[in-house]
Design a protein around this nucleic acid. Sequence first.
DNA 1: ATAAACCTGAAAATGACTTTCAATATCGAT
DNA 2: ATCGATATTGAAAGTCATTTTCAGGTTTAT
Lengths: 142, 142
Amino acid sequence: MNESRIQQLREYLNQNGMKQTKQRDLIASTFFKTKKHVRIEELLQEVRKSEPNIGYVTVYRTLLLLKECGLAHQRHFGEGQSLFENAGEHHDHMICIKCGAITEFEDDRIEDLQEKVCESFNFKMVSHRHEIYGACSRCQKE
Amino acid sequence: MNESRIQQLREYLNQNGMKQTKQRDLIASTFFKTKKHVRIEELLQEVRKSEPNIGYVTVYRTLLLLKECGLAHQRHFGEGQSLFENAGEHHDHMICIKCGAITEFEDDRIEDLQEKVCESFNFKMVSHRHEIYGACSRCQKE
DNA sequence: ATAAACCTGAAAATGACTTTCAATATCGAT
DNA sequence: ATCGATATTGAAAGTCATTTTCAGGTTTAT
């Protein structure tokens, strides 16, 4: 199924007069294989295991590209660096302020109520973020 | 009622061996008088109408101070600069991606469900952010 | 195989803070 | 009201995480 994502990327490249390169292939496929959320720097370290000469900028640009074609989302939890998330079903996040662990959650009832709120304001929702910050169960014990 | 906030600030300063200065007074009272959300730069322009020599850094530090004593919240909508919000009851936000207008909303049912989600993950919530991005009613017409 | 268009990586530039530091102002004690 | 120890100020320098620039290097349609 990572194959189909690579395909999706290639189509996007073609349709936009962009070229397929080994760097893009490597970066994208590595991204699809990593855990759900990665920082640019982490992904860079990962791809350099295969191609030590790849530059930060290329990873950065490829991630923006994946974002453009809908295969990745960029998240800004708290401060500092942003995380890129493998696209998939929509989820919201719980972020542990102690250890940084990210847990995803989904609640249709919340989503419904959210829609209702928008209707009541005559607001047309395009996207949303719902993040809960606190202590994960592991960190509560310590 | 802005008076009571100024009082609150003074008490905090006293209790922490900090000093009351005319810059802090001006910046704080100006902040309390502005619209609910301001950027550092905007507040700087505002206070400079009374005191042209006030520096960016002083506004910045005063805002952090207000945040420390609970009189302001710092928000990071989208990218770029952060906004400081006059503290008050808790609200979530709807941000228009066209004109930037910010509307607040509150829904107890959502808050309840959020608590339930946390319980189910044994997660101890400290804070949360719930932001809806889209087009406000005014911008939908255009 | 060629040329036009696109990519790459290194380095420089940017934006939004944060920190440093010498000069100034504050406040409790006199 | 004056002192002096301590805190605050503003300008300038420093950080950090991207973003942009640019001189080669690749791709790909022909």
